[in-house]
Structures are given as structure tokens and as C-alpha cells.
Write a protein that binds this DNA or RNA. Structure first.
Length: 199
DNA sequence: TCGGCGATTCGCT
DNA sequence: GCGAATCGCCGAA
């Protein structure tokens, strides 16, 4: 069952980041479905320096991050290092710019298609074990920014199982040293022991 | 308008 | 383990 709009409109983005572990992220392109189990997420709130929507005088809206100010249930996709697309789930109410970065998935459906999109790989665990890797495997690029997760192009499945807290590990977020003290927030969540978690 | 740099990945050493 | 790749964003001027 597809996650409903109410899930994305929850007001605690850290809680949503935890709840997304174990859910299924899918895309459908030309009728071909690819997807996998979310095994690594990071929460980003406009209130802290790690977020693209952070501003010293309050939330900062720019052309790039505008979609984060929309209501929860949209995608936020942007280009980083001039070559990788990163996929986020926009959460919370309109004008509250929170989002969850999906950092890794465990391949589940359309594996051969994902392999073809990724090109030559020596290690099978490298297929979707990073934020830039999974977008390439799922066929996500900048055109996907702002899509609704309630449609049939990109969506998140609830398999009806709750992930026990003991299987979730919290740690500081990756690659945001510029965020100062906020870089220490334990807002990265992983499924303990999963082989597709990024290194 | 200009210049520095990033929520990363991959290949080579 | 290190550095190149590669470009759009964003703050400063």
C-alpha cells in the first residue's frame, strides 16, 4: 500500500526519517518498475544549518529549495558536485521546509534494469548504496524535482511492517561539516547490519 | 556578473 | 587513501 499524504505531513521530520526505514521506494519509467527497501535516511529541518532552507533570520527560500516549502508528499531532487542527483522526500505542512534525504536502498525490483543504468560494477553491493547511486539506478534526474509521491511515477510503499527500534541505528549526518554544531545532530538513520548502507 | 564550492562517486595508487 | 570530474547555485560586488 502506498504511503498516504498524511504520512508526509507529519510535523516531526526526524520521526519521519526513522519511519521511512523499511519502506519501499519505487519509480516507473516507460512501464518499467524499479525499486528497493529504504535502509538509510537523513532528516533536514529548516531550523538547522545542515538544511538548504536554513537562514540566520529564519527559513530561506531560493529557486533551488522552493519545493521544500510546498506541502509534504513531494520530491526534492537537486544536482550536487555537478554530476550526482540526490533524492529527498518533502515533509511537514506548507511553508515549513523539512525534508528527508534517502541515502541508500536495498535492491528489490527491476534489478537488471538498475544494473544497466549503473553501468559496470565490480561489487553488487554498490548498486544502490549511496544517495547518488540510488538515483542513477532508479532513473531519477532533475526532471523529477517537485513530483507528487501519491502518483504512479515515483512513490513509497508501506509493507505493513514496523521496524523495531533496536534495528535502527542513529549517527551524525554525512558531508555537512559546514553546519558547525548542527553537524553533530544524530539525524542519520540506518537499518543495523544492512549491507547496502553507504560507507 | 563573478567565483567558490557542494547532503558524491569512481578510478588509480 | 587521494584527487578529479563537472555545473548550477548562491552570496558578494
Amino acid at each position: 500500500m502506498k504511503l498516504p499524504e498524511s504520512f508526509y505531513q507529519q510535523t516531526n521530520v526526524v520521526k519521519v526519517a526513522r519511519q521511512l526505514l523499511g519502506k519501499g521506494l519505487y519509480t516507473r519509467i516507460d512501464g518499467e518498475v524499479t525499486g528497493g527497501i529504504i535502509v538509510e535516511t537523513e532528516a533536514y529541518s529548516w531550523k538547522e544549518r545542515g538544511s538548504h532552507a536554513y537562514g540566520p533570520q529564519g527559513a530561506k527560500r531560493t529557486p533551488r529549495n522552493a519545493i521544500m516549502f510546498d506541502k509534504g508528499g513531494h520530491t526534492y531532487v537537486y544536482l550536487i558536485y555537478g554530476m550526482h542527483y540526490l533524492f529527498n522526500v518533502v515533509t511537514n505542512r506548507p511553508d515549513v521546509a523539512d525534508a528527508v534525504l534517502i541515502r541508500a536502498i536495498e535492491p528489490l525490483e527491476g534489478v537488471e534494469i538498475m544494473k544497466a543504468r549503473r553501468g559496470k560494477l565490480t561489487n553488487p553491493f554498490h548498486l544502490t548504496s549511496g544517495p547518488g547511486k540510488l538515483t542513477k539506478a532508479l532513473g531519477i534526474d532533475r526532471k523529477w524535482n517537485g513530483k507528487s509521491l501519491l502518483d504512479n511515477e515515483v512513490w513509497i510503499e508501506d509493507f505493513g511492517r514496523k521496524t523495531p527500534s533496536k534495528n535502527i541505528e542513529a549517527s551524525p549526518r554525512i558531508g555537512i561539516d559546514y553546519a558547525g554544531e548542527d553537524a553533530k545532530l544524530p539525524w542519520r538513520f540506518t537499518l543495523k547490519g544492512n549491507r547496502w548502507v553507504s560507507k
